[in-house]
Amino acid sequence: MGVVFRNRLAALGFLIVLLVSVTAAFAPLLTTHDAFQMDLTKRLTGPSLTHVLGTDMYGRDTFTRIVLGSRIAMQVALGAVLLAVAIGVPLGAVSGYIGGYVDTVTMRFIDALLAFPGRLLAIAMVAALGASFFTLYVAIGINAVPGYARVVRGAVLSQKEKEYVEAARMTGESEFQILFFQILPNCIAPILILVTLDFAHAILLESSLSFLGLGFPPPAPSWGLMLSEARGYMELAPHVTIFPGLAISFSILGFNLLGDGLRDVFDPRQYEG
């Protein structure tokens, strides 16, 4: 962990991720107003002491909605990434370890999935199944599966030739034990990097879906939805679109910086020379 902090950008990324996560975890404690309470007398007011980030076109407190929105963003991203890891990692691991026909078939399937435009697939799925946490997990997560499968397959391919695998076989471990308890722990680094980067993708994709009206229906305080609702008032009250937009960019920036930082740390080449 110390190494991560020596890289300043990564440290910044980590702080942002921490901030967003803490916000999402303790959202109800941080809010100042009721996120759904409309007050038409206070439509589109600018930032003030009572409404730190102003109010939207229905007079709802933007700060409160952004804070609650972080929950939706993080929960969807977490679910989607976990689902992708749960499917992609074993798929790639088994494929790389067994090799041969199993590998060929699995990887062609993964290639096919990869060839499909992810956003389109997500839109189609949510449109067909309706928005719920579960459909969003699946719709967003399925796009990340090929990444894990490929990365893990590559890592397993390089690890399975190492002598410690032979040594484990010598001590009488089964192939299953060797793959999941000897090899996979050595493939954690690339998985961790991918998880961090995929969080950013998932947040963006969830916002996009909400923006297109395919995410949670109003009045849910999803960031993408907030942007979409407020865009008609951009000339009148730009802050109503700016703040949710900033929330999205800020979280994505954080995850990306952290991901890049982790990649630098885990890449052994940087220690050479």
Binding site: K162, E163, A167, T171
Partner: peptide, 19 residues
Amino acid sequence: RGRKISMIFQEPMTSLNPS
């Protein structure tokens, strides 16, 4: 393997799991 017949290898540097 490992119970009745064991084997030790040439490369002690890499025969242990680094994790």
